[in-house]
């Protein structure tokens, strides 16, 4: 069972104050901390769990600048066997389609039975790369997967729908699955673990290595472009209660009481 996992390095915004940069098309990233995209982390764990169960290899692939190597190191520490880094100035500024195109060109050359990706990324949030990749590779896909079993050449998956409903599907392999959070419990990756793989070789590829011209990838090869970023209006709908903890709690209790909810 050879599995390919697509991962992405994204900023962790939990603690950050977001500032739009001067180009208006991106946010200020200098002071941000980065990490593997949350969804990809679950996808990676799922791939390694499958490998531990069924044998085979896990190859992890990312597209990004040189800093993106850190998510590949992390993936190797988790248990991936190979790492491929699509790193070329020409890849910059690509949309989901252009990204998927580059990934497809690289993956097409490798042996694989299954391709896993996160259901979406914490930055762009297109939720598009996995299914686009599948179509470019000409294989079936399922998105938002919350459980996965492989039985020979068949993958049985659960997809998360709305309102607590899930659907159970079967797909013929090879296929692309996009993984939803919560599918597993990703393992901890220690600093020692990352150090252990520090000298492992990473396969770095440029657009030309994939037989792609600069016009086909990155911003040039995209079907959409970002015109402008803005911060959503901060306008509040209702009242912010002011005062000390005791005062605001008292006010709120009074509001509840006036509605008759404390009877």
């Amino acid at each position: 069972m050879d599995i390919i996992v697509c991962v992405k390095r994204v900023p962790d915004l939990a603690e950050a104050d977001i500032v739009i940069d001067r180009s208006q098309r991106d946010i200020e990233k200098d002071d941000l901390v980065f990490d593997i995209n949350e969804w990809d982390n679950y996808a990676l764990e799922e791939a390694v769990l499958l490998k531990e169960k069924l044998g085979g290899t896990v190859t992890t692939i990312t597209l990004g600048d040189e800093d993106a190597e850190e998510v590949l190191r992390r993936a190797l520490a988790v248990g991936a066997d190979n790492a491929v880094h699509l790193d070329d100035a020409a890849f910059a500024g690509g949309d989901a389609y252009a990204t998927a195109k580059a990934l497809a060109a690289a993956i097409r050359e490798m042996p694989y039975d299954l391709v896993l990706a996160g259901a979406q990324a914490g930055d762009d949030g297109y939720g598009q790369v996995g299914a686009t990749l599948a179509e470019l590779l000409g294989i079936p896909h399922a998105t938002l997967v919350t459980s996965l079993e492989v039985d020979g050449k068949i993958a049985r998956v659960r997809r998360e729908l709305e309102a607590g409903l899930e659907e159970v599907m079967e797909l013929g392999l090879p296929a692309v699955l996009t993984i939803q959070t919560g599918i597993n419990e990703p393992r901890y990756v220690s600093i020692a673990g990352i150090r252990r793989v520090a000298r492992r070789e990473i396969d770095v590829r440029k657009a030309s290595d994939l037989g792609l011209s600069a016009a086909e990838v990155g911003a040039a090869g995209s079907k959409t472009e970002i015109e402008k970023l803005s911060l959503p209006p901060a306008a509040q709908k209702g009242d912010i209660l002011e005062g000390s903890t005791a005062v605001v709690a008292e006010k709120l209790a009074a509001i509840f009481a006036s509605k008759g909810w404390l009877g």
Partner: peptide, 10 residues
């Protein structure tokens, strides 16, 4: 984008 903390015009 960015988990709803930014709006992008495309």
């Amino acid at each position: 984008a960015y988990g709803g903390r930014v709006r992008a015009s495309l």
